[in-house]
Write a protein that binds this DNA or RNA. Structure first.
Ligand SMILES: [Mn+2]
Ligand SMILES: [Mn+2]
Ligand SMILES: [Mn+2]
Ligand SMILES: [Mn+2]
Lengths: 218, 218
DNA sequence: AAATAAATTTAGACTGATCTAAATCCATTT
DNA sequence: AAATGGATTTAGATCAGTCTAAATTTATTT
C-alpha cells in the first residue's frame, strides 16, 4: 500500500507534468508539496523503486503508467468529493479544497464508485476540472486562459487556473459563475487588462486575473 | 493537532472505559488497537503529557474531560459516516465499519455538522449505536444482551455487541432487522440457547449469538 | 574553456510510531 | 513472608518522513 505522502507526491508530479510536458524537476515538486528539495530526492528514490516514476539523478522524473494511474485515481477521488461537498453539503467552491485533500486518501474503490453513482456521474468538479472515470479515462480540458485570447467576442467561462480561496472568493464577488457567457470587449494595451461583459454587466479584469480564468471559444 | 494514532488510542480507551467502569489497562488497550504493550506505554506518556488521560505507572488510565471529548467526537464522526454509507451509498451494515475507520479521522467540524444535517440528524447508527450530538452529548444505550433476559416475552432488537462482519452477515441471513420485535419463547437449560420468534418465524439462537444481540424490553 | 551560479544529491540528524528483549512491579499463592 | 507469574515499563533498535549543511553536478556567462 502507498502512504498518503507517496500519493501526494504522485499527484504533484502528475499535475506538474501536465504543464511541463512530461518531465518534472525536483525543485518544482518541492514547491508543490511544500517541502525541501532534499526530502524530495529521498522520495523520488522510493517512488522509483516502486516503479511509479522514471528517475535519473539530476535529470528530473516522468511518471510510469503505473504511477500515472495512481495519480489519476487520487485526482478522481479529490474531484468527486468536491462535487459532493458543493452539491450535497452546501459548501461554496472556495471552501472544499482542503477537505478534499483529506478525503482523496480514503481507500475504497467501492466507496468512490458508489459516490460517483450517487452524484450521477458528474463530468466536472466545482472548479470546472474534468473528473476521470473509474477506468482512469480523463478528457483533458481544451480551454485557454482569458488572457491569451486575441480577438474580441463571446466566450464561455469554463474553469480556473488558480484554485486559491482568495481568487475564488474574488470571482464569486464579481458574480461570475462557471458556464457563464463572457464577452471580451477590449484588451487594454497599457497593462494588458481586459474589459468584459457578463450578464449585461461590464467590468475590468487585471491581466493577472485574466490569466487565471479559463474560457472556451464558441 | 492530534495524529490519527492518538485519536485511535483515545477512542479505544473510551470504548474500554464504558465496560470497565472508568479505569483501563495497558494490555486491554494493546489488544484493542492491535499493537504491543510497550508501544501502548509510550503512547500513554504522550497522551498524559497532553492531558488527555490520567496516568500513573502500573495503575492504568482514565480519560480526562478533554480526552473524553475528543474520543466522543471521533465516535460521532465514525457513526455519522456509517449512516451516510448505508443510507446514501447503498452499503450493507456489515460493509461500513472499515471505511468509517478511515473517514472518522477527517478533520472539519463544518463537514461533519453539514453531514449530520444532510442525514437529518440521525440518532442511531446502522448497528443501533447512539450518535453523539455536536456538543458531545450522547445518550448511552439502555439495552441489554438477549442472553441476559430471564423472562419470556416481547422485546425489541435494538443493537449488536459484536460488530464483526461474520456476525452481522449471520444476522442478515436470519432476516432480523434493527427495530424488529423479538419474542423470547424459551430458554433452553441445557446449553443456554434460546428459541425466539420474529415475524412469525421461529428459530434457535446459540448462547453466543444471544450474548451479542441487544434488546430493549417493552 | 574556465568561472560562476543554480539545481540537485548526499550526509547526518531528529521525531513519531513501532518492535523485541530485558528489567521491574504487583498480586496471588504457598 | 517468600516465591512465582503476569502485567507493565524501560532500553535499545528500526523505519518513514522530514530537516540543515555540505558536496556534487549541470547550466549559464564571460
Ligand atoms: Mn481541489
Ligand atoms: Mn477542484
Ligand atoms: Mn463501526
Ligand atoms: Mn457502528
Amino acid at each position: 500500500m502507498n502512504s498518503f505522502t507517496e500519493e501526494n507526491y504522485l499527484k504533484a508530479i502528475y499535475k506538474l507534468s501536465l504543464s511541463s510536458g512530461g518531465v518534472v524537476n525536483t525543485n518544482q515538486i518541492a514547491l508543490q508539496v511544500n517541502t525541501k528539495a532534499a526530502t524530495v530526492t529521498d522520495m523520488l528514490k522510493k517512488l522509483s523503486d516502486k516503479n511509479y516514476i522514471l528517475y535519473q539523478k539530476y535529470q528530473g522524473v516522468t511518471l510510469t503508467e503505473a504511477g500515472k494511474k495512481i495519480a489519476i485515481h487520487i485526482v478522481r477521488k479529490h474531484r468527486l468529493w468536491e462535487v459532493f461537498l458543493v452539491e450535497k453539503l452546501n459548501f461554496k467552491w472556495d471552501e472544499v479544497h482542503d477537505i478534499a485533500e483529506q478525503l482523496e486518501h480514503i481507500r475504497s474503490d467501492e466507496l468512490i464508485d458508489e459516490l460517483d453513482k450517487f452524484l450521477e456521474f458528474p463530468a466536472f468538479d466545482p472548479h470546472g476540472d474534468p473528473i476521470p472515470d473509474k477506468h482512469g479515462k480523463i478528457t483533458e480540458l481544451t480551454s485557454v486562459p482569458l488572457a491569451s485570447v486575441k480577438h474580441k467576442g463571446k466566450l464561455v467561462f469554463s474553469g480556473v487556473e488558480d484554485h486559491s480561496k482568495a481568487f475564488l472568493q474574488y470571482l464569486s464577488k464579481t458574480g461570475i459563475t462557471l458556464g457563464d457567457t463572457i464577452t471580451l470587449n477590449e484588451i487594454i494595451d497599457y497593462d494588458k487588462s481586459v474589459e468584459i461583459s457578463i450578464k449585461n454587466k461590464k467590468m475590468f479584469l487585471s491581466h493577472e486575473a485574466a490569466k487565471n480564468i479559463l474560457v472556451e471559444k464558441i
